[in-house]
């Protein structure tokens, strides 16, 4: 005898779409920062609310003195498929960065300073992590004007409430 079983609804209380994301940016390399910016921009393009929380070396992405100088990590990066000693040669990281940036420009991905501005203009909010700011002895003045505030982890969780958290 066959019986038609009614399938239980999958997660009935979950909305079918993501409405909000909070993205934690913890790395200061080019390949650490871009995915976060691309995901934040992509969220806004879909009408999804987006908050970015920059912590540890991720803060470099919003530091006035550093955000134009973000480099690809050429040492300890197995994804590059080359010997570590080669990646450690002087100027190698700058070269790899230049090459990657020219590839990105071809597919219309902006350089980091322009991308930070684009993401902020699109309505995403940018926050610096208070613990890291205190640890490095930084202040609001050290950050690009697009940064909304310096907030604690607790405040970040409050902002992220009701959405998805992405750690990069």
């Amino acid at each position: 005898m066959t019986e038609l079983l009614e399938h239980p609804k999958l997660a009935p209380d979950e909305p079918a779409t993501i409405e909000k994301v909070a993205i934690v940016v913890s790395k200061g390399s080019l390949e650490g920062i871009y995915p976060a910016l691309i995901m934040a921009n992509g969220a806004r393009m879909e009408g999804i609310e987006a908050d970015l929380f920059f912590t540890f070396f991720g803060l470099d992405a919003i530091r006035k003195d550093r955000y134009e100088k973000i480099k690809v990590a050429t040492v300890g990066n197995p994804g590059l498929h080359m010997p570590t000693w080669l990646g450690a040669l002087p100027g190698f990281s700058a070269l790899a960065t230049k090459m990657m940036q020219s590839q990105m420009e071809k597919i219309d991905i902006p350089p980091i300073p322009e991308f930070v501005e684009l993401v902020a203009d699109s309505g995403a909010h940018l926050y610096a992590c208070k613990a890291t700011v205190d640890m490095f002895g930084l202040a609001m003045d050290d950050f690009v004007p697009q940064v909304d505030d310096i907030i604690s982890v607790g405040e970040f969780y409050a902002l992220a409430a009701g959405g998805q958290i992405i750690f990069t």
Binding site: R44, M45, G47, D108, I109, P110, E114, L118, D121, S122
Partner: peptide
């Protein structure tokens, strides 16, 4: 792309999102 839309359409990115909040 949203980048060239903001640069070349004559409508800046901020305003694009005000006009079309859902993307």
């Amino acid at each position: 792309s949203i980048r060239s839309l903001g640069k070349e359409s004559g409508v800046p990115v901020k305003e694009l999102y005000q006009l079309f909040p859902k993307g």
